[in-house]
Amino acid sequence: MLYYVGKRLLQAIPTLLIVITVSFFLMHMAPGGPFDGERQLPAEIEANLLATYHLDQPVWKQYLLYMGNLLQGDFGPSFRYKDFTVTELIMQGFPVSLELGLWAIGLALLIGLPMGIVAAIRRNSTVDYMVMGTALAGVAVPNFVIAPLLALVFGVLLAWLPVGGWNDGHWRNMVLPVVALSIQQIAYIARMMRASMIEVLGSQYIRTARAKGLAEYEVIWGHALRPALLPVVSYLGPAIAGIITGSVVIEQIFGIPGIGRYFVQGALNRDYTLVMGTVVFYGALIVLINLIVDLLYSALDPQIRYDH
C-alpha cells in the first residue's frame, strides 16, 4: 500500500513536468506581455520592469530560472497584483475554492446517487423518465446561465439569500454557488449510477441472489450497491476536475475569491507567474485526487489489491 502510494507519487513527477513545461511555453507564446496596457510605459521604465522580472532574457533561460525557483517552493511575485506573491494569492484562494468544491461534490453525490438508484430500480417507468429528465435538464443548460438565474430569483426577487460575495464563508453566501456548481455533476452522477445499477441488476449473481428469495431492498443494499458504485467512484476524479472548471464561472458570477478567477485573469493579463502558479498547483492537486480516488476504488473493489 505505502509502496504503491510512493510509486504513484514518483510517477507524478513527469506529469507535473509536462504540465509546467507545456503551460510555460504556451503562456510565453501568447501575444502581448504583462506590461502591455492601455497607456504606454516609457521605454526606460518598461526595460527596467522587464529586467526586474528577468523577462528580457531568452525564454529557455526564463524557464530554467522558473524551474529553479519552483524547486525552492517559490512561485514568484504576481506581475499584476503587486502587493501579494503568487503563493499568498493561492493560499488565500485555495481554501475558498476547496470549501466550495467539497460542498458541491457532496451535494452532487447526495442527490445524484439516490436519483440514479431509484431510476434504475424503476427502469422505463414514469418515475425513471421524470428523474432522468430532471437530471438531464442540468446538463442541458450551461451553468453560466443557471448561476445568474439563481441569483436573480433567490437573491434579487425573493431576497432569501445573498446575491454574491463570500463573507468569510457564511453558509448563506454559499448556498447558491454550491447549488449552481453541483447541478451539472448531479446529472452526470445520476446517469452513471443508473446505468451501472442497471448493469449490476442484470448480472448473474444478482439473479442468483433473487433466486435465493432475498427481499428486494436486501438485494439492492446488500449486493448491488457496492459494485454499482464503482464506476461512480472512478468518475470522481473527472467530476472534481469538472467542479474546478465550473468554479471558474461560478466564482466570477458570484464574486467569490477563489483560485479559478486568478487563473482566468492571470491568463488574460499575461500575469505569467500567477498563471503558472495556479496551473502547477492544480496539476498537483489533480494527481493527488486521482490517487485518492484509486485508493478508494481499491477499498470498494475486492478484486483489486495494490500490495503486490
Partner: peptide, 17 residues
Amino acid sequence: FPIEERNTALNRFRAGE
C-alpha cells in the same frame, strides 16, 4: 467590493448588498 461583472454588481445593488 471588487466586482468585474457589471451584472453581478447590479444584482447585488438590487438585493441591497
